Amino acid sequence: MDDLDLIDRKIVAELMRDATLPVAQIADRVGLSQTPCWKRIQKLEANGVLTGRVALANPARLGFGLTVFIGIEAPDHSAEWREGFTKAVAGFPEIMEVYRMAGEMDYLLRVSVADMAAFDALYKRLTDAIAIKNVTSHFAMERMKYTTAYPVDTRNR
C-alpha cells in the first residue's frame, strides 16, 4: 500500500466502509471531482487493490447461526496432499475462509453452518473427502467484533 497516495487511501477507506456510495459522494469526501475519482477507482480495481464490492449479510438472519474455527493438521506436507486439500475445501460453500498456518496447526478454517447437526455433517463430508491427521474445532459463542475494512492510514504523511 506504500505506492498509494493519500487520495487513493481515502478512496479505499470510503469504499471499505460503504461500497454503495455514489462516486460523487466519494469524490466529495476525498477532495476530488467525480471524473478523476472514478478513474482512480478503476485504476485501484485494475491494480488489484480493490478486489470486489459486496453486500455484507447477517449470518444468523440467513440461517447460519453457528461459526466454527477448525484447525487441521495435515498427514503430510506434499504438493499432492495440498492440492487435494485445496480442491476438497473449495467444494464446501460452508467453509468461508481457509488459511495455511505456521505453528501447531497447518490450516485454519472458518465455517458457517446452521447448527451442530449441520457441522457434524460437514465434518463427516470433509474427513471423507481428504485424509487429515488431526481436526480441532472451536465453536464461537459470540461475535464481539467483526469488520472487513482494513485500518488504512488516511492521514497525510
Rank of each mutant, 00 (worst) to 15 (best):
D3N: 15
L4S: 08
L6P: 00
I11Q: 05
A13M: 01
M16N: 05
M16V: 00
R17A: 12
T20V: 00
T20K: 05
L21H: 02
P22Y: 04
P22V: 00
V23T: 07
I26M: 05
A27Q: 10
A27I: 01
A27E: 01
D28L: 10
R29T: 05
R29I: 03
V30Q: 06
V30N: 05
G31V: 02
G31S: 09
L32R: 14
L32W: 02
L32Q: 15
S33I: 02
T35N: 08
T35G: 14
P36S: 10
C37Q: 04
C37L: 08
W38A: 15
W38S: 15
K39H: 13
R40C: 04
I41Q: 04
I41L: 04
Q42S: 11
K43N: 03
A46W: 00
A46N: 12
N47C: 04
G48K: 00
V49M: 03
T51Q: 15
T51N: 07
R53V: 06
A57E: 14
N58E: 15
N58S: 08
P59V: 03
A60R: 14
R61D: 13
F64T: 07
F64D: 03
G65W: 03
G65M: 06
T67M: 09
T67S: 15
V68W: 05
V68R: 10
I70F: 02
I70V: 14
I72A: 09
A74P: 06
D76H: 13
A79F: 08
A79E: 11
W81E: 11
W81R: 07
F85Q: 07
T86H: 13
K87L: 14
A88N: 13
G91M: 03
G91Q: 07
F92M: 13
F92D: 13
F92T: 14
F92N: 10
P93W: 03
E94G: 11
E94I: 03
E97K: 13
V98Y: 08
M101F: 02
M101T: 15
M101R: 11
A102D: 08
E104F: 13
Y107I: 06
Y107N: 09
L108I: 02
L108Y: 05
L109H: 09
L109G: 09
L109P: 12
L109A: 03
V111A: 07
S112Y: 11
S112W: 07
V113Y: 05
M116Q: 14
M116G: 10
A117K: 05
A117E: 10
A118H: 01
Y123A: 05
Y123M: 06
K124M: 05
L126A: 06
D128K: 13
I130N: 10
N134E: 14
V135R: 13
A140I: 09
R143Y: 03
K145W: 08
K145Y: 13
Y146T: 13
T147R: 00
T148C: 04
T148M: 14
P151G: 10
V152G: 00
V152R: 01
D153V: 11
T154S: 01
R155K: 14
N156M: 01
N156D: 13
N156L: 07
